[in-house]
Design a protein around this nucleic acid. Structure first.
Lengths: 165, 165
DNA sequence: TACATCTGCTTCAAATTCGAAGCAAGTGAT
DNA sequence: ATCACTTGCTTCGAATTTGAAGCAGATGTA
C-alpha cells in the first residue's frame, strides 16, 4: 500500500478551494449582518425554505442540506421563529416531525438581503471568471458534490449489509 | 443600475462550491479528531507553521492566513501551547509581536495526522476528477483567490486615496 | 398486542467563536 | 521630547455550536 499523497497541483487546488470559500464566506457574512442582521446559517436556512415550492422543510432535511448539527438547527430555528421569520408546526404525517415554514416576513427579509448577497458573490467570486470559466467550474463541482453526497459519511469501514462477506 | 443577479449556471456553481467545501470540511474534521484530536483550525495552524521555513509565524499573519479572528487565535494558540505543540515567544524586532513556533511534538503530530488527511481529501475531493480536471480547477481558483485577497475586505466604499476624484 | 429498535427533535453542559474594550509598544508630526 | 495615532495581542462577556443524553412517536416482528 503506497503512502497516500497529493501532488502539488492537487494540493494547490485544495488550499485555494479552502481559502476561497473562507474569504467568500467572510465577506458574505459581513454583508448579511449589515443588510439584515442575519448569520450565514440563518440565511442559508431561509434561502432553502424560500426555494422550496411549499416554503417548508422538515428539520432533519434542513440540517442535512446545510450540513449542520441537529441541536444547532433547533437553536437557530428557535431564533428565526422568535424573529417571526419562520413558523414551526407539527407534521401531519409524522407526529414526531416538525415542519419549518418561511413566513411573509421571512420572504421579505430574504428579498431585502438577496441583492446585496448576489452582488458580493458576483464581485468576489465571479469577477475574475469568464462565462466559459464558470461553466467549466460548475461542470467540475457537480460531480464532486454528487460523489461526496453518495459517499458514506465516515470512510470508516463501509460495513456490508447484514451477513457481510 | 440593473439589479445585480446571477444566472443559473453561476448560482449552481456557487451553491456547489459552498456545499462541497462544507462536506469536505466535515469529513476532514472527523478524521483529524479521530487521528490526532485536532480541530480543523488547529490543524491549519500547525500546517502553516510546519510549512514555514522557520517553523514560525507572527500571530497576526497566522490569523490572516487562516481567516480567523484575533481573539480566537489567541485562544487556540493557548490550547496548542498547553498541549506542547507550539511555543510562543516575544518577537525580537517588535516588542508587541508574538512569534509562534511549532515544536517537535507539533511536527510529530502533524506527521501522524497528515496521511489520513490526505487520504480523505483525495478520496472525497479528487476521486471524481481527472488529472486534467484538477489542473483546470487549480487554474480557475488561483485567479479568484488573488482577486479576493486583493479586494478590500469591505466592499463598503473603497475610499479613494487621499485627494480623491 | 407486546417488544425491540429506529427516528426526529429537544435539552443540556462544555467548548469554541466573535467583537468590543483594554493595554503596551511603535511611528510620525510638531 | 511630546502628543496623537496606529499596531499587535490579550481579556472579557455574549452568542453560537456541538455531541451526548433524553423523550416520544413510528416500525417491524413474533
Amino acid at each position: 500500500m503506497p503512502e497516500p499523497s497529493l501532488d502539488p497541483v492537487q494540493l494547490g487546488a485544495y488550499f485555494d478551494l479552502v481559502e476561497v470559500t473562507s474569504l467568500l464566506r467572510h465577506a458574505v457574512e459581513q454583508q448579511l449582518r449589515e443588510a439584515g442582521d442575519l448569520s450565514y446559517v440563518q440565511f442559508q436556512l431561509l434561502a432553502r425554505l424560500g426555494d422550496s415550492p411549499t416554503g417548508s422543510h422538515r428539520m432533519t432535511d434542513l440540517a442535512d442540506g446545510v450540513v449542520y448539527s441537529r441541536s444547532g438547527l433547533t437553536y437557530q430555528a428557535g431564533l428565526l421563529e422568535k424573529a417571526g421569520l419562520v413558523v414551526r408546526t407539527p407534521s401531519p404525517d409524522d407526529e414526531r416531525s416538525v415542519t419549518v415554514t418561511i413566513t411573509d416576513a421571512g420572504r421579505a427579509l430574504l428579498a431585502k438581503v438577496l441583492p446585496g448577497h448576489i452582488e458580493v458573490v458576483g464581485g468576489l467570486l465571479f469577477e475574475p471568471l469568464s462565462r466559459a470559466d464558470v461553466e467549466t467550474l460548475a461542470g467540475l463541482l457537480a460531480p464532486v458534490r454528487d460523489h461526496m453526497r453518495s459517499t458514506p459519511p465516515r470512510s470508516a469501514a463501509p460495513r456490508r449489509r447484514k451477513g457481510g462477506a
